[in-house]
Design a protein around this nucleic acid. Structure first.
Length: 98
DNA sequence: CTTGTGACCAGCA
DNA sequence: ATGCTGGCCACAA
């Protein structure tokens, strides 16, 4: 597997996450062939503008939004899609996409 | 619930 | 080549 092939896999998988659902870095990584969770995070970080990918539907394994530059926007986008956060900032486990 | 530790691997200085 | 750093994860304690 080359680096760009894994990137494509990551993009393809993220693009398949339905609106109003979320998944985790590790889950995306498992669906690819050889990518690690860190690479998924790195891929999301380097996304160009206007990519059209629902990057905001990717959260961490504890069902929280990881602290980073666009975390506020991420929560807002999810909320706009109907993803509810509880008082501790966690999303409902039933919203997880396999 | 919280921390700490080890594993993972692509970039970059 | 080496060393450090990441939108992380699983598994302790």
């Amino acid at each position: 597997m080359t680096r760009s092939e894994r990137l494509e896999q990551i993009y393809t998988i993220v693009a398949q996450i339905p609106a109003g659902r979320v998944t985790t870095y590790g889950r995306v990584a498992k669906m690819t062939d050889g990518a690690t969770a860190r690479m998924v995070g790195s891929a999301m970080r380097q996304l160009p503008a206007g990519h059209g990918l629902p990057w905001h539907r990717v959260i961490n394994a504890s069902r929280r939004v990881t602290e980073h530059g666009g975390a506020i926007d991420q929560r807002e986008k999810l909320r706009a899609e109907g993803v509810a956060f509880d008082a501790k900032g966690r999303v409902n486990a039933e919203l997880l996409w396999p």
